[in-house]
Design a protein around this nucleic acid. Structure first.
Lengths: 231, 231
DNA sequence: ACAAAAGTGTTCTAGTTACACCCATGG
DNA sequence: CCATGGGTGTAACTAGAACACTTTTGT
C-alpha cells in the first residue's frame, strides 16, 4: 500500500472554534458571546473562542460539539459552519487551519458556566469584549455579521429565545441583532402575517400588563418552504 | 520548546477544492463547471473538482489559486470560500478535510483548457454533469446554491460576463443562474435604476439589430455601499 | 420580405412605512 | 395613582408584476 498518500508529514493541524451567541432580554437586552479563558500558552490568560483540535477520523461538526461540551457544558444547540481560517502565522505553535462555527443557545439554559477546572467560561456582551487570542476577534466579527444576515431569511432567531416568548421579546431580539429599532405595530403585523407563530393562550405576568406568550411553529414554517420569512 | 504542540501526529490532511463556474451565452446559454479528470487512484479516470493538498505554511486561498493555476491554467479570477468538508471516509486514502471554494471566470478567457499532461480539464454544463469523485457532487451543488443566492445581493454576476455586455446577455445570465425567465422591461428598468451600469456608447453588431454595450461601474457600486442592489 | 433580437410605458397590486393613543397590571 | 410595557388601525408611498407592440439590422 505504499504510495497511497499524496504528500507526507508535516501537514497543518486542524482545529474547530465556535462563536456562541446568547441573548439576555429584560430591561437592558444584550447580545452576548461565550468565551473561555486560556490556561496554556500561547495567549495564556487571554479570552478565546471555545474550540480545540479535531481528532483522528473525527467529523468536523462532531468535533465542534465535543469541544463545546468539554469546555462549556453545552449540548443540543443550533450549530452551522461559518468559515475556515488558515493564514500561516495565525497560531504561533505552527500552521493551524481552524474551521469556525456559529452556535446559538438559549442564554438562560447556561447561566454563569462554572469554571471548575483550569478553564473558565463566561458570557460577554458583544459591546464590551475583552481582547481575544489568535485571530478570534476577526472570527467573532464574521459570526456577528452572519447572524445578522441569516436572521433576515431563516428562523434561527428562535434558537435564542425560550420556547415561549412574548412579541416584545421577539422584537427586542431583532432590534438587538440588527442594531436598529423597529416599529411595534408594523413588526406585529408582519410576524402575524408570516403565520409561523402560535398563540399559546398563556400569559406572562410581570410588573406590568400581562403579555401573551407565543411559540414558533416549525411545521408551519417548513410548510411555507421558507418563502418570504424575514422577521 | 518541548510540549508546545497540543496533539501529535496523525492529523487529518488538508486540501482545497474549487467549484469553477463559467457561462456560455449565445443562442442556447449554459452555466458550466470546470472539471478535471483524475489520473491517479482513488477514482482514477473519474471527473473531479480541481484541487489538491495545502502546502506547509501555505495560506488557504493561495493554495486554491495555485491548484487552479497548475491544473487548469486559470489566474486572476474571483474566488470566495464556500464551506469545509471533513466527514471521515470522504477520502478513502485517510481523513481529509477539504476547504471548498467558489470561483467565477469569464468562460471565453478559457476555452477548452488543453490537457497536456496526464490531467485533462473540460467544461461541463451543470445540466449534464458526469459522476464525480469523492463527495464533489455535494460540493458542486452547494456552489450552485451559493452562486444563486449571492447573485441576488452582490455584483458577482459581472465576474462571469465580458467587460462589456448587452442587456440581453445580462438578463440571460440572471435567468440561467436562477432558472426562471425574467420580464425584459422590468429587468431593464431595474438595472437602469440601480445606477451601476454605464452605457459605453458602443454597439454590438450581429445578425439582428445592434445592441448597446454596457459595463459595470464598480466605483459607483461601492459608493452605494451595496444598498439595494439585486439584479 | 422575413426572421430575430432590441428597445420602450402604463396600470395594478402588494408590501412597507409613518404615526399616537388607550389598556392592564404591580407596586 | 403612577410607572411600565402591552396592545391596536389607517393612510401614503414604493416596489414589483403583468402585459404587446414597434424598431433595426442581416440575409
Amino acid at each position: 500500500m505504499a504510495g497511497r498518500f499524496v504528500y507526507a508529514w508535516p501537514r497543518p493541524a486542524v482545529a474547530v472554534d465556535a462563536v456562541v451567541f446568547g441573548v439576555l432580554l429584560g430591561p437592558s437586552p444584550s447580545l452576548e458571546v461565550l468565551l473561555i479563558r486560556r490556561g496554556l500558552a500561547p495567549f495564556a490568560g487571554r479570552w478565546a473562542l471555545p474550540g480545540g483540535f479535531v481528532g483522528e477520523d473525527e467529523d468536523l461538526e462532531v468535533a465542534a460539539r465535543r469541544e463545546l461540551a468539554e469546555e462549556t457544558g453545552l449540548s443540543g444547540f443550533y450549530l452551522e459552519q461559518l468559515a475556515t481560517y488558515g493564514r500561516p502565522g495565525r497560531d504561533p505553535r505552527g500552521h493551524t487551519v481552524s474551521v469556525a462555527w456559529l452556535a446559538l443557545v438559549r442564554r438562560l439554559d447556561h447561566v454563569p458556566v462554572g469554571g471548575t477546572d483550569a478553564r473558565e467560561a463566561a458570557w460577554f456582551p458583544v459591546e464590551a469584549l475583552p481582547p481575544l487570542a489568535f485571530d478570534h476577534g476577526e472570527i467573532l466579527a464574521a459570526g456577528r455579521e452572519r447572524l445578522r444576515r441569516r436572521l433576515r431569511y431563516s428562523p434561527i432567531g428562535f434558537e435564542l429565545l425560550p420556547p415561549q416568548f412574548t412579541l416584545g421579546e421577539l422584537q427586542a431580539l431583532v432590534e438587538l441583532i440588527d442594531g436598529a429599532p423597529a416599529d411595534k405595530r408594523n413588526f406585529r403585523r408582519k410576524v402575524e402575517a408570516s403565520g409561523v407563530l402560535v398563540d399559546t393562550g398563556l400569559h406572562r405576568r410581570g410588573p406590568q400588563r400581562p403579555a401573551r406568550l407565543f411559540s414558533f411553529d416549525r411545521a408551519r414554517y417548513d410548510a411555507l418552504e421558507g418563502r418570504g420569512f424575514d422577521l
